[in-house]
Amino acid sequence: MSGGGPADESGTDAELMRRYVGGEAEAFRQLYARLAPRLLGYLLRMVRDRAAAEDLVQVTFLKVHRARAAYVRGADPGPWIFAIAHRSFLDDVRGKRRARVGLADDGEPPEVSADITGATDGVRAAADDQRELTQATLAALQTLPPMQREAVALTKLGGKSIAEAAEIAGTTPGAMKVRVHRGYEALRKALGAAAATEEST
């Protein structure tokens, strides 16, 4: 994410942020259009619920708006905005005192709606077993402890580097690497156990 984020005809994220703090609402809208989908994808993997994730996207951008004077000109706003999303998620969890262990009241893993699978058109068109694997992976993801879930969501699913994910989560790269590894191993075990159960039945 270094270098001020992706560039297109509108400029980098840093350029949009510069215009936004300069008072251009259109620059904010462009920045929102660029970052909100990525934030929504990240938050969906954390909260499982689309409405809650969309609320958190709004809360995140409200906080960005209210804290825009804290922005440092020329900096890439992406990691800062993701870190605000991370904090908003934690505040939401603590505020509502909800245990997000990923199991429904009946003790079963929750159903994952199609729109949070992150599947592309190509994947949707692919064989059923690939889709089932994707869904099983995402369902298994919800069973991980929040920190491991976030580590996997940011790196394996969100495409962030270890250093970027560590910056967003407010931890060290070493600790993030451990969380990713543990999360990945837990996912592997969960998927292996699910496959074994399926075979035995």
């Binding site: 709004q58 699978t117 992150g118 592309t120 190509g122 694997l133 994707t134 394996k156």
Partner: peptide, 20 residues
């Protein structure tokens, strides 16, 4: 084990944010 990523459509800007 990989899961493909897809950028979801941006949710509309909420009323409170729009007002600000």
């Amino acid at each position: 084990m990989t899961v493909d990523r897809q950028d979801l459509p941006a949710p509309p800007i909420g009323d409170l944010l729009a007002a600000e």
